[in-house]
Computed example of a mutant assay.
Amino acid sequence: MKTFTPKPADLTHDWYIVDATDVVLGRLATHVATLLRGKNKPTFAPHADSGNHVIVINAGKIALTGDKLGKELYTHSGRPGGLRADSYGDLLQRNPDRIVREAVKGMLPKNRLAKVQMDRLRIFAGDEHPHTPQKPVQFEITQISQQAK
C-alpha cells in the first residue's frame, strides 16, 4: 500500500465560521483544532499544510464548566519575575479571545506547522467580523453546554 502525499495543487484552504455561543471551551477547541489542521479533508497528511481558515465569533459567550472561572491562565514574559496569572473570570470579561486561543494552541501539535495553522485562526468577542468577502461556510457544533439549556 502506498502512502498518500498531497501535492501543492491538492491543498486548499477553505474558510469556516464557528459560533461559540454556549459551547463548552474544550469542545470548541477540539473542533477548531481539527479544522485548522485540515483533518476534515480526505487529503489530510500530518506533514502537509492542508488546514483551513477558521473564524470564531461570540467568544465572549463560551461556557466554562466546573470551577474554571477561578482557575488561572499563566504566561511568562521570559524575564526574571515575569510570571503573570490571569483568572478565567477576568479574561472572559476583558479578553475572551485569549482563552480560546490558548485552548486551541494546546490541542495542536508542537512543531513549526502549528504556528502557520494558528495564524489562520481569527477570534472575535462579538458576532461581527470583517471576513465576509471570503464567504466562510458555517460550521455547526451541535452539542452545547448543559447549563445553557
Results as ranks from 00 to 15, higher is better:
2 K>M: 11
3 T>E: 14
6 P>S: 09
7 K>P: 04
8 P>V: 06
11 L>A: 03
16 Y>A: 01
18 V>R: 05
18 V>C: 09
19 D>T: 06
21 T>N: 15
22 D>W: 11
24 V>H: 03
26 G>Q: 01
27 R>Q: 07
29 A>Y: 02
30 T>V: 10
30 T>Y: 02
32 V>F: 07
36 L>V: 01
38 G>C: 03
45 A>W: 14
46 P>E: 12
46 P>K: 13
48 A>L: 13
48 A>W: 10
49 D>M: 09
50 S>G: 15
52 N>Y: 05
55 I>G: 01
57 I>N: 00
62 I>S: 00
64 L>N: 03
66 G>P: 05
67 D>P: 06
76 H>K: 04
77 S>E: 02
77 S>L: 02
77 S>A: 04
82 G>S: 08
83 L>H: 09
89 G>C: 10
89 G>T: 09
92 L>H: 10
94 R>H: 08
96 P>H: 00
98 R>Q: 14
100 V>L: 06
101 R>C: 09
104 V>Y: 00
108 L>S: 02
113 L>G: 09
114 A>H: 03
114 A>K: 02
121 L>N: 00
121 L>A: 00
122 R>V: 07
123 I>V: 14
131 H>C: 10
132 T>C: 05
135 K>V: 08
136 P>I: 02
137 V>E: 15
141 I>F: 13
144 I>S: 15
144 I>T: 15
145 S>P: 06
148 A>G: 09
